[in-house]
């Protein structure tokens, strides 16, 4: 049995959103990569330790690595919210559109259907995130930045587990709550809560 077509359908469903996210990622990374020289002269950030904790690597933004790490990590929250919105939409929108019955009446187990949807969405988001790489290269050329492509790639790849986690969270929320708005709200609240917990964790350390 193949559910490949269903995965392709899920990918096709999000292709517009993924292109939009990809363009956003491209522009944000390009803007940051090209504007690194403006931060080059900042040697020390004279901020309280607690604030440095919240902003993570912000204290070392004068180095290409620290600067890149800071802006890549700043992409995480909007990307997480966007991913969750897509995830919640995947199942809840089928129910809202009334197509879920037709789908569930097919001879495929529900976990398998959910997985094939998740794979399609994850591929879409991975392609969006991958747009960061050409943006980094282009921005690096403009700013004559010396940072290794591999280190940047590692920073971008580190986003993928977040995307996967939030995608699965959105899918489950959408499947369990079957109401897109409620599922999106609950999920977004969880992301914001996690962000603050992470920030507070940095302060405590």
């Amino acid at each position: 049995m193949t559910v490949g077509r269903f995965t392709r359908k899920a990918l096709r469903d999000v292709h517009g959103a993924a292109i939009g996210a990809g363009v956003a990622v491209f522009l944000v990374v390009l803007l940051h990569a090209a504007s690194f020289p403006s931060y080059d002269q900042i040697q020390v950030m004279h901020s309280p330790d607690a604030l440095k904790g919240i902003f993570g690597e912000a204290g070392s933004i004068s180095s290409p690595e620290g600067y890149t790490g800071a802006y890549v990590s700043n992409i995480t929250v909007p990307l997480a919210i966007f991913t969750i919105v897509l995830g919640t939409r995947a199942i809840a929108s089928e129910e809202e559109a009334g197509t879920l019955d037709l789908l569930l009446s097919q001879p495929v187990g529900r976990p398998r259907l959910l997985l094939s949807k998740a794979v399609g969405l994850a591929l879409g988001m991975a392609l969006a995130v991958a747009d960061a790489l050409p943006a980094f290269l282009l921005g690096g050329l403009v700013a004559e930045q010396q940072m290794s492509v591999w280190r940047f790639l590692a920073a971008v790849v580190s986003l993928l587990p977040f995307v996967a986690i939030f995608l699965s969270f959105g899918l489950w929320a959408g499947a369990l709550l079957s109401n897109r708005a409620l599922a999106g709200t609950v999920s977004a609240a969880v992301v914001v809560a996690m962000y603050f917990l992470n920030a507070i964790g940095g302060v405590v350390e």
């Binding site: 049995m1 193949t2 559910v3 077509r5 269903f6 037709l102 097919q106 001879p107 495929v108």
Partner: peptide
């Protein structure tokens, strides 16, 4: 989806 694509999609879920 076109009718043909609906057929393809549902066919793909058949054993």
């Amino acid at each position: 989806l076109r009718g043909r694509e609906m057929v393809d999609l549902m066919s793909g879920l058949r054993p």
